[in-house]
Amino acid sequence: MDKFTRLTTVAAPLPQENIDTDQIIPARFLKTIQRTGLGKHLFADQRYDESGNERPDFVLNKPAYRHAGILITLDNLGCGSSREHAPWALLDFGIRCVIAPSFADIFHSNCFKNGILPIALPRNVCEALMDDARQGENARLTVDLQAKQVIRPDGEVIPFEVDPFRREKLLEGLDDIAQTLLEKQAIEQFEARAARAWIPSTRGN
């Protein structure tokens, strides 16, 4: 997992509420054996027409937002099915941070697990940031996780809250696995317990 410290990038505004994971990535793209490469299916039903051509009005199809690193939406982002393909698709597209007034629970935690920072801010603030984002290339937002701040193009600083444990992991670029591997010694000691001697191998006797 890549570290997340400070990010300065174009933000894509998507002023919709209750964007469910089916919209983020429709179910028909789940038959895959990979988690990378899903970026092209991100928001597929909004992004492409029936014949698979890009809809020019959809925000991610506009030249300014093709490399957006932040997505800003309205309430309850990521509701619906708990599929991990949703953060996988966002990440693969290049989104490292999502900003919304509120998030669905599992999506929120799946974002952290996959190296995406979700930031909850009051609705009026999200709307103000969307106004900035509408200026495209001319208005880059900065997200500083170290300082827990979003910095608007005009320099205004907006503080945000984040779970300290999860913040630490993002700053260090530690996923759950890397974190757990720090406990290697404790795991080895556990495995060496005499009381576990009866447990056979799956390689057969």
Binding site: T32, I33, Q34, R35, T36, E84, W88, F165, T180, E183, A186, I187, F190, E191, I199, T202
Partner: peptide, 29 residues
Amino acid sequence: INTLEDGTCLLYIDRHLLHEVTSPQAFEG
């Protein structure tokens, strides 16, 4: 194995069974 402040435990797993539908992305990782 140990318990974190918020009550989350690191739990040892004795047996892990895999099948073809939910394992490919894990191996990829």
